[in-house]
Design a protein around this nucleic acid. Structure first.
Lengths: 344, 344
DNA sequence: ATGAAAGCGCTAACAA
DNA sequence: TTGTTAGCGCTTTCAT
């Protein structure tokens, strides 16, 4: 069965030139002088016949596919994956690359298989992405192609990594309250988010907390309290906030370690008839969508998902394989949930 | 520069057989009898040398790439894209396919370009996905490869489409309330979601409403009222619910047309000191994540994002190109926001 | 400057 | 049954 497709040979024949001449012109390579007239004839023929290069054939020859792979551990773990993908797509499209997406489900065997499949298809590079910032082990298989780590770090610092700048974010959050005069009654709901595997606390949490504490210290004060709790659902933020409100000292400001906790905190505050921001100031970290949906909307320092995806792809395609940690600034959205401290 | 890769020829040489024998065995094709001993020798050699097929070369030859493209209009428009992708990935992986993801930004020119790029790479099929259910025009370019429409319909019914079964969902939502004895005071917040482009209402909204109304009618009653409003943010649900509460007849039950409206409705009800479900029953449509985060969690009929993605891929790879509308059941999650009507 | 020719790694028709 | 051979569509070296 002959191909129905228009090939480069067809174009050459139609234009009355050699296949190599057609190749030079159509692939737009420089350094070879082809008469303008011939060039135009070739371009015209291509246009006329509706020629399209066969990328598969090109790839076989050049060993470049103009594709990259974005491999997630668990896409469904958060609502953010879409935005990361969007950022990655944007950067890829700008540089004429297409994006494979895959998911390992955090299973090393699946990861191995997927990376293998990607390699078999000769992708130009692989981005390994985690849904929550953490340290990962990079497999041997992985090392065979250009690699960038997205929202994760490798233990030996051998790769280019892109992560949100959590520490600065923590500093910003605390600074917002400090600037409004909240020096004494600032509590944190969430804390270090310790889990079975990370008794010292989850990476993002550690960084946020150390940023918060550094800012307080720099201002010559300190947190009034930290309520450590699970970050996964509003329920935990609700309970943590309730227990906080039952204590002797009513807080004047609360920092919620993520938006889900902030939802719970709002619920608890409302039940206690505490108004935001009149009675209590609130700031959270997280996802622009959620924080803005609260009533009133909550000021938050948000994860730059789009930018994370974008940067990872840019880095991979820039051939700058320097191992380095690229910290992407988190973005501040003031939404009016902070008011000046009474005693200020 | 010689390839560093182990090729099929290397395996054949190592095993002392012809390249075609190696090809037969390694590609696992049937119908040709190769002695078991030879077969084992080839497999052994492949294993030993760490042979991996070059998919690019295979593709060039067979015109099959074992890849499909999933092209979205706007990934960022909702938080759901991740789940759809996850479902799609799952089905693709099961059948040894890899997935390209792309986004058109609802721009026909970008769509054209992307479909072209996919075609140039010889994808085995294309899925066109919309973030909100609607009718789309399928371009000429698109028609050149096997196509499935995800969360959208084509105007002439020429393609296989996968959409959520909104009408049945509407029926279920109403039935939940009816079964609890709510016959008279049932109000809808959201309505037909009419916009500039769709004066008759957005597809999903129309279907949900007609399902709701059909169920009411089948029970010999009707809605007490419909408050038409924008579906995009909790703010609108809040205002709609407030206006509802200000009217003479206090509702006994409210159906919110999506989860964002439900968030707003909860906020309004709480301000009026109406408890869910003691004073008022609530049911919504949407996203399991959001509805379960409300306090109390709200019973909802949820979009089957995962299943939508899964089905689209399955359909595409099953070669069942029959044009048909596949309606995927929406899933009901009872979360206790409905209680028996007082007069029941 | 142009064209002939040799592959990239694999599949599949055909011959032996 | 096995091996030989001709491509898939493109790039690129090397004579002309």
């Amino acid at each position: 069965m002959p191909s129905l497709r228009v090939t480069q040979a067809d174009v050459a024949r139609h234009a009355g030139v050699s296949r190599s001449a057609a190749s030079f012109v159509l692939s737009g390579r420089e350094g070879v002088r082809i008469p303008v007239e011939t060039r135009q004839r070739i371009m015209g023929a291509a246009q006329e016949l509706g020629y399209r290069p066969n990328r598969t054939a090109q790839s076989l020859r050049t060993r470049k596919t103009q594709t990259i792979a974005l491999i997630f551990d668990d896409i469904g773990a958060t609502h953010y994956a879409g935005e990361m993908i969007q950022g990655a797509l944007e950067a890829a499209l700008e540089r004429d690359h297409l994006l494979y997406i895959a998911e390992t489900g955090s299973d090393p065997v699946t990861e191995e298989k997927l990376v293998q499949e990607m390699t078999d298809r000769q992708v130009d590079g692989v981005i390994l992405a985690a849904m929550s910032t953490r340290t990962v082990r990079v497999s041997e298989q992985m090392r065979r192609n250009p690699t960038v780590l997205l929202n994760c770090l490798d233990e030996f610092g051998e790769f280019a990594c892109v992560v949100p700048d959590e520490e600065t974010a923590g500093r910003h959050a605390a600074r917002l309250l400090l600037d409004a005069g909240h020096r004494e009654g600032v509590h944190v709901v969430g804390g270090h988010h310790t889990t079975g595997g990370t008794p010292e606390g989850v990476f993002a949490a550690q960084k946020r907390m150390s940023g918060i504490e550094a800012a307080m210290e720099a201002a010559g004060t300190r947190l009034a309290g930290i309520i450590e709790c699970d970050w996964s659902a509003p329920e935990h933020g609700y309970r943590a906030t309730r227990s906080l409100l039952e204590s002797a000292f009513v807080p004047t400001a609360v920092i919620c370690c993520n938006d889900r906790l902030a939802i719970g905190a709002c619920q608890a505050l409302r039940e206690s008839e505490l108004r935001i921001p009149e009675d209590i100031s609130l700031v959270s970290f997280g996802d622009p969508g959620l924080a803005s949906w609260l009533r009133p909307p909550v000021t938050s320092v948000d994860l730059p998902h789009h930018e994370l995806g974008r940067t990872a792809v840019s880095l991979l395609l820039s051939d700058d394989a320097t191992p380095a940690i690229h910290r992407i600034p988190m973005t501040l959205s003031r939404r009016g949930s902070i008011t000046a401290a009474r005693d200020a």
